[in-house]
Design a protein around this nucleic acid. Structure first.
Length: 495
RNA sequence: GGGGGCGUAGCUCAGCUGGUAGAGCAAGGGACUUUUAAUCCCUAGGUCGUGGGUUCGAGCCCCACCGCCCUCACCA
């Protein structure tokens, strides 16, 4: 299969035509050429020069039809031996998937399709390997048959270039992704936020409960960790007087991979001095509502047959109240046997439930009873202290913290606090974490003395939030797996 | 990590209770100066994931390994 393409390359080069050009002066994208022809209203349109990949090729004796695809779409080309002259030799040695440039006059074929009648054909890059293209046939009765196509997820993700090349709809997901981050940046920029970049390689990781990736710095001969969160560095910036900061970047967590987890993923975090978590909740709601409007033009997105309404005010439920309502138990008052019994009622296996203690147990009760109900956009407010070592103690209930998470479709989209800025309180929380760590909790956080020192200088009261961009993208692009919204998801190396 | 499933031509798949492989599309050759599912004629293409084993004989059975998918666990 490949050899025929190499022979075509040799034949083309033997005729003095380079198989890989240096540049091409394109005058129109396919869609723009078609639009211009239609505006003109004449049988013969203007001359255009289009360029793209040859995605369909129908040689037919001394003429040939094909379709060229570029970023805007496809346009048909029509080549004739009597018009191309010597360049016809090139046309005879074209292969599907070659990159070509065609200059010619726009016309409409007998069948009615706007087409470039080629006066010049330029080979821009030879394709030596056929793309795994499918083919669809539409029968007279409207039924569609599909032959082949790239469906194997392994190949799609390993060879994302091929996946993108044959699936315009996949390319569209990543255009959408860029629109989303652009919208977010504009939203924050307009409100006086400064986009910053903080270290990815860190001597001490923190800001979340997760296992890190570890690497080694040769010159310093010391371990370094890939960050699991941006939080502690961004809060240092608040101390430094950068009052509104945000970062969009990758965090790395050395844990399992599944539909909603990739070892590196994109996190948005922003921090705002003199705001509390209520202010942040208002912003998160406004941002998401705006995003849904921007992307869909409406205020709802339909997912799994449910219209998720981002237009009306998001539901709000208290962590403790919500659990009491659905599980009939007060997690602040209940003892561990009570909570384990509740878990058993929800269907959690006894041996699994037996392993949960402390904050973990509370969190499991939440996940079992409340999380599944959080389909519409819902804020869950005021988490117990044990679950939130970086959040400020609640102003009216010392057992709680000022923290919320935002859920949609039962999935966490955002996590936010009134940021803990009392260095003595933070020190005590770190010490609790260290005790948990010594007791065997590998996800408990480290004591970060430099962060405490920063807080001692005085951090203004502030609200902050983290939003997982990949999961947000899954929602907005209606994709079932995080791999569908990450260009090159993590894979085991090919054997 | 546990459980389940899958890995056959470039792509998507079929292959009956084990008898040494098949389709469509793609590909190659030929015909064809308005096709778009082009059409018509002809042709070729596979160490059946890898390595062992059972058997007279294995794509099919057994074992191990590799990879992917689903699921559970872990992971807010």
């Amino acid at each position: 299969m490949e050899s025929a393409r190499r022979e075509n390359r040799a034949a083309i080069e033997a005729a003095g035509v380079p198989a890989f050009a240096y540049a091409f002066q394109r005058s129109h994208l396919a869609a723009d050429a078609i639009a211009e022809y239609e505006r003109g209203g004449q049988a013969e349109g203007p001359d255009v020069a289009v360029a793209g990949r040859l995605v369909a090729w129908r040689p037919k004796g001394k003429v040939a039809f094909g379709h060229v695809e570029d970023a805007s779409g496809r346009i048909q080309i029509y080549l004739r031996q009597d018009q191309l002259g010597a360049a016809w030799t090139l046309a005879e040695h074209l292969d599907l998937d070659d990159h070509v440039g065609v200059r010619g006059t726009l016309m409409r074929t007998r069948a009615g399709e706007i087409t470039v009648r080629g006066a010049e054909l330029t080979l821009l890059a030879k394709s030596l390997r056929p793309l795994p293209r499918g083919k669809t046939q539409v029968a007279d009765d409207g039924s569609v048959r599909t032959f082949g196509g790239l469906h194997d997820p392994e190949v799609r993700f390993r060879q994302r270039y091929a996946d993108l090349a044959v699936h315009p709809e996949v390319r569209e997901i990543f255009r959408l992704r860029a629109r989303v981050t652009r919208y977010i940046r504009r939203y924050l920029d307009e409100r006086g936020f400064l986009e910053v970049e903080t270290p990815v390689l860190q001597p001490l990781y923190g800001g979340a409960a997760a296992q890190p990736f570890v690497t080694h710095h040769n010159a310093l001969d010391m371990p370094l960790y890939l960050r699991i969160a941006d939080e502690l560095y961004l809060k240092r910036l608040l101390v430094g007087g950068l009052e509104r900061v945000y970062e969009i970047g990758h965090d790395f967590r050395n844990e399992g991979m599944d539909r909603t987890h990739n070892p590196e993923f994109t996190m948005l975090e922003w921090y705002m001095a003199y705001a509390d978590y209520q202010v942040i909740a208002g912003m998160a709601e406004e941002l998401l509502r705006g995003l849904v409007r921007e992307i869909t033009g409406g205020e709802a997105v339909e997912r799994d047959g449910v219209a998720l309404d981002f237009g009306r005010p998001f539901a709000r439920v208290g962590f403790v109240d919500g659990i009491r309502e659905h599980a009939g138990i007060d997690v602040l008052a209940a003892d561990e046997p009570d909570m384990r019994a509740a878990l058993l009622r929800s269907g959690v296996p006894a041996d699994t439930a037996a392993t949960f203690t402390g904050g973990k147990l509370v969190d499991e009760v939440f996940k079992a009873f409340l999380e599944p109900h959080l389909v519409q956009p819902t804020f869950v407010f005021d988490y117990p202290r044990v679950l939130s070592p970086l959040a400020k103690t609640h102003r009216t209930d010392r057992r709680l913290t000022e923290r919320f998470e935002l859920f949609v479709l039962g999935r966490e989209l955002a996590n936010a606090f009134s940021e803990l800025n009392d260095p003595d309180d933070q020190r005590a929380r770190f010490e609790d974490q260290v005790r948990l760590r010594q007791a065997g909790d590998l996800d408990a956080q480290h004591y970060d003395a430099d962060f405490i020192r920063a807080l001692e200088y005085g951090m203004p009261p502030a609200g902050g939030i983290g939003i997982g961009i990949d999961r947000l993208m899954m929602l907005l692009a209606d994709q079932p797996s995080i791999r569908d919204v990450i260009l090159f998801p993590a894979m085991r190396p090919e054997g």
